[in-house]
Structures are given as structure tokens and as C-alpha cells.
Amino acid sequence: MQIRKYQESDFSTLCEIHDPARKQELAAANLTAAFIPFKVASQKDKTTVGFVAFNDEELGWLYVKPEYQHQGIGSQLIDFAIKNAGRPFYLEVLEGNPAQKLYLAKGFKTIQHESGKMPGNESFHVEVDLMKYEK
């Protein structure tokens, strides 16, 4: 297996992976009607500017291109995840991540500070805050 940096030419393949897997995930959670194709959910003015990845229990990834940050896109992606996830809903935030302020503003609460190895790259030590959303 090869892991590499995302390239714009990967977008259609990303859609092909995301859409059926997302449909499967939502069907298992009785949320089939909540499906939005990745091509629609990830674009602003027909340009891909960010994405959110989550399951019923955890927000795993939320990224917005730096030039589109502070325009409400991250907030909308979090709202979408919150609307379609179960309760309680968790996330881990690396210490120093400026997005933590956004998560707090959206109703997440810090419940625990953890210290350990970075999953998938254990040669790095990380400090993270475990956050929880219950509303």
C-alpha cells in the first residue's frame, strides 16, 4: 500500500470511495436520507474547499483550505456532522490546534487531556484534548 499527498486529479476517485461508503454508513445508522454526494458537500462555488469525515460516534477529520478558513465553512461542516451523528459525539484535538475554539463555540466540551504516541506514526509524541458533544 502507498500513502501519499492528495492531488486534485484524485478528486473523482475520492468521490467514488466516499459516496458508496457514506451511503453504507448512513444506512446502518438509519440516516439514508441524510446522504449528500461528496462532490456537492465538499464544494463552494464549484471548487472543493474542505471536507469532514465522521461516523456515528466520532468526528475524525475536518479540513478547510487555508484560504477559505474563517468564512463559516468549517462551522457548516461541523453542523452537518452534528446533525447526522449520534450522541454523545466525540473528537480529539491536537494541542495548539486553533480549531479547538470553533469546536468549543459549537458546543463541544473538553473532557480529558491525553498524552501518547501519534496513531500511525508512533515515533511522534502528541498531546490531545478529548472533546464531547451531547446536545
Rank of each mutant, 00 (worst) to 15 (best):
E95I: 12
E58P: 10
H113A: 14
V49E: 01
K23L: 15
I36M: 09
P20R: 14
S115C: 08
G107D: 01
I3V: 13
A41E: 03
R87P: 15
Q2I: 05
F124L: 14
I111P: 03
P88F: 11
S12V: 15
I73E: 11
S42A: 14
M118Q: 01
E67N: 14
E8I: 00
K109N: 11
I78R: 09
Q76C: 01
N121M: 13
Y133E: 12
T110S: 11
F124A: 15
Y133V: 15
A99H: 04
I111M: 10
D56Y: 03
S12G: 02
L130D: 08
A85Y: 14
E127P: 01
A41G: 13
H125R: 12
G120M: 08
L102V: 09
Q112M: 02
N84V: 00
E16A: 03
K117L: 15
K65T: 12
F80V: 15
P98H: 11
Q7H: 14
L91Q: 13
Y103V: 11
H18S: 10
I111G: 03
K44R: 09
L94S: 05
I82L: 00
K39T: 14
F11Q: 13
T47H: 11
T47F: 03
Q76Y: 09
E16D: 11
I3A: 13
A28K: 07
V40A: 02
A81R: 05
K39D: 07
T32F: 06
K106P: 05
A81T: 06
G86I: 01
M1P: 08
Y63R: 00
E8G: 02
L26E: 06
L31P: 08
N55C: 04
F38G: 15
G120C: 13
H18A: 15
V64S: 07
A85G: 04
V52F: 06
H113K: 14
S123F: 01
D56F: 07
I73T: 13
F35A: 04
K23T: 06
H113M: 04
A105C: 04
E25W: 03
K101P: 05
I36D: 05
T32D: 02
F89M: 08
L77V: 15
I3D: 10
L130A: 07
Q2C: 02
A34V: 02
Q43I: 06
L130P: 06
G107R: 03
L102I: 01
F108W: 13
G86C: 00
R87A: 03
L102F: 10
F51A: 00
G60S: 11
